[in-house]
Design a binder for these strands. Structure first.
Lengths: 198, 198
DNA sequence: GTCTATAGCCGGATAGAC
DNA sequence: GTCTATCCGGCTATAGAC
């Protein structure tokens, strides 16, 4: 982005991200986005080419797609690697970009037509987790039957904290900080995988 | 329902359940539902009073709301009780009513205005799980820090198999039957809770 | 680059005939 | 109880003035 944060294109992206996270893509209108951004309705088409393109632009603009390669030296050992990715995941969805993480969650579970876009950014992460699980099993550190299904269970735990907002009727307000969340998540997963604790 | 399954009201409910599960509530139109059911567009309003009321009627008609009370005698012991509910959950969402289970998942993660309806039917189940977790901790069988967050992690694992469809890009086709899924789910959760296996 | 005005479509719901 | 025809509102997108 060539200009400051109050650049109109950026303001539209920020408003769209916020509203998509709260109301979903289909539940958000272009009018709402532009009103929130203080921009005219026509500018979404002019600058991005439509509502769908705004969605794509949000990922291009806000998703740091090189997390895996940046952390590559910490991802060789199964235990260290898995812990690192889980911590990064919790950190991403709790503090770094809560809104984008809600959008991802929604689009994936709705099986929307935007899933391909989301997958382009997300696949490298979960593929890495899958590799680490297999590696850990080969080394006799992790213990499980089905690789694919274990990946799904690990993902389920790693993303558990997001359900806090959806199940507030049973859960209540959380008083845990991201560090505690990450710790308990990692602990549960490693126990679930049968890792011998030191 | 007073008449057979090809009763028009029931056919509308069956079509609505199918389409809501595939496309979501907002992504499904009354016209689609009626076309699929072989009914006239006006009949949704006439018989149910609108699209939203059809959603509510689906739960009234298909959700067996007395699972907890029916199984009550198996729900006193934390280990047996938790296993029973997890098996019931997997069974429900894999074989008994896959479509309704997709609808539930979608409405919960979208934080939709239908969430209250869903919660009315779902809360007793997760509340029971929460009670069992606390009871198991008190008895020294389960080991965890935060009760609420552990409940979220347990839910995440118990519902992991549903993500199979959403993450097909990484997961691939499953060859597991519901029994194997339930077994691996129970095993992972009990290990995660630090239960001593016999 | 930004605005207003409007086109064009599709949604849910219903009036009124049968 | 079921149908057709229609209303009315909201949506995205764009033409054209500035």
């Amino acid at each position: 982005m060539s200009q400051a944060d109050n650049d109109i294109k950026t303001r539209i992206l920020l408003s769209a991200r916020k509203l998509f996270a709260k109301q979903g893509f289909e539940g958000t209108t272009v009018r709402q986005i532009c009103e929130d951004a203080g921009a005219n309705v026509a500018l979404v088409s002019y600058h991005f080419g439509g509502k769908e393109k705004v969605f794509e632009a949000i990922f291009q603009h806000f998703f740091s797609g090189n997390m895996i390669s940046e952390l590559e030296d910490q991802l060789s050992d199964p235990v260290v690697g898995l812990r690192t990715i889980i911590e990064e995941t919790v950190n991403f969805s709790c503090v770094y970009d809560k809104e984008l993480s809600f959008i991802i969650q929604q689009e994936m579970t709705m099986n929307s037509s935007r899933k391909a876009i989301v997958n382009k950014y997300l696949n490298p992460v979960w593929t890495k987790v899958k590799e680490l699980l297999q590696k850990g099993k080969d080394q006799g550190i992790f213990h499980f039957d089905s690789l694919s299904y274990t990946l799904l269970m690990v993902m389920g735990v790693a993303l558990a904290h997001k359900r806090e907002y959806n199940y507030d009727a049973i859960i209540g307000e959380s008083d845990m900080n991201p560090l505690e969340i990450a710790d308990q998540t990692v602990a549960f997963i490693f126990k679930g995988l049968g890792v011998q604790m030191s």
